[in-house]
Structures are given as C-alpha cells and as structure tokens.
Amino acid sequence: MKKCNQDFVVQRINDFGTKFERRFVTKQGLEECLKDYKTNNVIDDYEIETSDDLWKFVIDTLGKGD
C-alpha cells in the first residue's frame, strides 16, 4: 500500500508475478477496502507492505474491532 500522486494504491502480485492495483481517491476509500478485506477474512492471505506514511493508518484500521 502506498500513496501515488494523490491516490491511495493497494497492489497485489499473484503467484505468476502479475500485478493488480486498486486505486482510491480518498483515505476513506482505502479504509473501507481494508475493513472489507478484514471482514471477509482474506487479509491473512496477504503479506502487507506499506509506505512509512501509511503504516500507522493501516495498523490502526486493521486493529479496530468490528
């Protein structure tokens, strides 16, 4: 996860090395994405890497109770 220009970007790379990106215009959109991954129990399928400026936000969002 990173901020690219003004967008928040979630990038996934599959087993074949193909990259998939989801872009969000707002931090709220990124937060909703993270909550959705957590709620649907798919967050454990990911190795999370994030830019320094988003690290605290990501940890706080994923650490929130349902």
Results as ranks from 00 to 15, higher is better:
Y37T: 04
N5A: 11
T26N: 11
V10S: 10
G17T: 06
M1H: 07
D7N: 14
V25E: 06
T50S: 13
T50L: 01
D52A: 08
T18K: 00
E21I: 15
C4Y: 06
G65E: 02
V10K: 00
V9L: 04
C33R: 01
S51M: 02
R12G: 03
F8M: 03
I48G: 02
Y37L: 12
K3P: 08
K56M: 06
Y46V: 00
F8P: 13
Q11E: 15
I13V: 15
L34R: 06
F24K: 05
F24A: 02
Q11S: 15
Q6W: 02
K38I: 03
L62Q: 09
V42S: 13
F16M: 07
D36T: 15
L30T: 07
M1V: 10
T18W: 01
G17M: 01
F16P: 00
D36I: 07
K19M: 08
D15Y: 11
K19V: 11
D15M: 05
V25Y: 09
V42L: 07
N14H: 11
F57S: 07
Q28N: 10
K2N: 09
Q11C: 14
G29I: 10
N40G: 06
Q6F: 12
R12E: 05
K2L: 07
E32R: 13
Y46C: 00
K3T: 15
E32K: 14
W55V: 12
D52Q: 08
F16E: 11
K56L: 07
I48K: 04
W55E: 11
T61A: 12
M1P: 11
F8W: 15
D66V: 07
T61C: 14
K27P: 08
K56T: 15
K19T: 13
Y37H: 12
D60I: 03
D7G: 01
Y37D: 10
M1T: 09
G65Y: 03
D44Q: 05
D36L: 14
M1K: 01
V9S: 02
Y46T: 05
G17V: 06
G63F: 04
F20C: 06
I13M: 12
K64D: 07
D53N: 15
G65C: 01
K35N: 11
L54S: 10
E31D: 09
V25G: 10
C33F: 15
K27I: 15
D44Y: 00
D44I: 05
E47C: 04
T39Y: 05
D36P: 01
L34H: 08
K38F: 02
K64A: 09
D7M: 13
I59Q: 11
Y37I: 04
D44A: 09
E49V: 14
N14A: 10
D44W: 00
S51P: 12
K27G: 14
Q6N: 12
F8S: 05
N5M: 04
F16D: 10
C4W: 02
T26R: 03
T18E: 09
D36M: 10
F24L: 03
C33L: 01
K64E: 12
L62F: 09
D66F: 06
D52S: 12
F57C: 03
T50A: 14
G65D: 01
L62Y: 06
V42M: 08
S51G: 15
L30D: 05
G17D: 05
